[in-house]
Structure formats: structure tokens, C-alpha cells
Amino acid sequence: MSALDTRPGEPPHYSQVWTFRTPRARLALWVGWVALVALFVWCWQLMNENTLWIFVTDAPSQAADIGSRMFPPRLAYLPELLMPLWDTLNIATLGTMGGVILAVPVAFLAARNTTPSALLVRPVALFIIVTSRSINSLIWALLLVAIIGPGLLAGIVAIALRSIGFVGKLLYEAIEETDARQVEAVTATGAARSQVIHYGIVPQVLPAFWGISMFRWDINIRESTILGLVGAGGIGMKLQSSIDTLAWSQVATILIVILGTVVVSETVSARVRQALI
């Protein structure tokens, strides 16, 4: 190495000949990382302005306390959970159906190749999709409980409203990815627009449609288990009342039931999707 160092006019070390990035890019990268760290520290301080650290240091004992109360889960509570579980399934299933039915026209209006007007209609459809996607189903439920009152209906509508964005987005992307030549061929026969969509596009997106719907149903099962926290029916209502009464052993039972339901629905959805494709 020292031999390399002494030669005049040559770089002292191979590492100066070969570098992974140009100096400028490296500098930019470093500045980026430093900025991120600074941002993190600043955010951390801002966030914890009002944090009471006594509670935080107390957390382990709290956790131990809750843990000991949760165990053993109160299995005698199970029969009471059957009706809410049925409600939860209904919220998810009916909500998915409603959402899918509403999402289909939105998707066709949003896809570049099927929208009647890219300037007027498409932005509206895209806005519906973004709005629905940005707002979590729990917030939709919160709103709907305030508007139409607590109960299953609020849950179903919340799930449906949230599903429009998800299904609509994936479906319109599938529509845009269809093979344009097949559509062109149907157009060339003199078919009307509705027939072109029905013969040229629908067969191509049908598998994607069923896959997306099953996928969303699976997610909706998951989400509908907690809608009861804001009063929108289902097993979440039991969760809420058990937490309110500090019945942690019941909470444990409910969590087990929720986990089981989620696992089952995930398996069913995966199986059905496989069978469809």
C-alpha cells in the first residue's frame, strides 16, 4: 500500500480509482440520510411533548397485569359469540357484494379505454375511488353510525363504501390492461359500445374480477370484526363491552375467535381464487 502511496501522479489507493457512486451522488445520499435522521429526531420530540413517561415506564407491570387477567380465556363465553360472529360474516359478505356492485360501473368509468369522457367523467370516478380508499372502513363506520344509527346496516354500508375504492382501482387497472386487439376485433364487426364491452372486455377481466372480489371479501372479514368498536354491529360490539367492563378473559376469548375466523376466511379465499384461475 505504501508503495502505491509514494508514486507521484497516481491515486494513492485503488479505492480512489473505483468508487461505487460518483462523489456528487454520494454527497446527495449522505445529505438525504442526515436529513432523515434530523427529521426523525424533530418528529420524535414534537410527538412526545405531551407524553407522560411515568405511564411508559409503568407499562411492563401493566402488561403483566393484563396478561395475567387474560389467561385463562373464558371459554364459557363462546356461545354468546355465535350470533355476533354470524352478524360479522353478514357484514363482510353483504358489504362486499354491495361494494362490488357499486365498484363495477365506477371502474368502467375510470378506465381510460372504456370511460365515456376522459376529461369529465374519468376524474370524477377517480375521485370516488381515492375518497373511498383514503378513508378506513372504521371511519366510514363511525360516520354511518352517527348518521343512520348503530347496527348491522351501518357496518354493511361502511364495508361497501370502503370496498368501492379497492375493487374499483384494481378492476379499472385490469380493464386498462386488457388486450386492445381483441377489443378492436369486436369493434370491427360493427358491434355497439355496450356489446364491445360485453364481448371484448368483460371476458378478459372476469377472472381478475372474481379474484379481486374474493380478496376484498377476505379483507372485509378482517375489518368487520372490529367495526363493532364504534357500534356498527358484529363481534366487535362484544369486544368493546368486554373492554369497557375490563373483562380481559373475555377479550382473550374474542381475540381467539377473531383469529380463527381470519385464518379460515383467508384459506377459503385463497382456495376459491386458485380454483378460479
Binding site: 386487439r181 381483441q182 369493434t187 364487426t189 358491434a191 371484448g200 378478459q204
Partner: peptide, 21 residues
Amino acid sequence: LRQARRRIGMIFQEYALVERL
């Protein structure tokens, strides 16, 4: 236009059949 199109048959490169029908 649609009525005129149905008087004109078209055969495509790479068939352009609707594959899933």
C-alpha cells in the same frame, strides 16, 4: 358507422379472438 362496419369483415394479425370465449 356501425352499420357500415358490419358490411366489412376483418381478419387480424395474431387472430385477435376473444380468448376466453
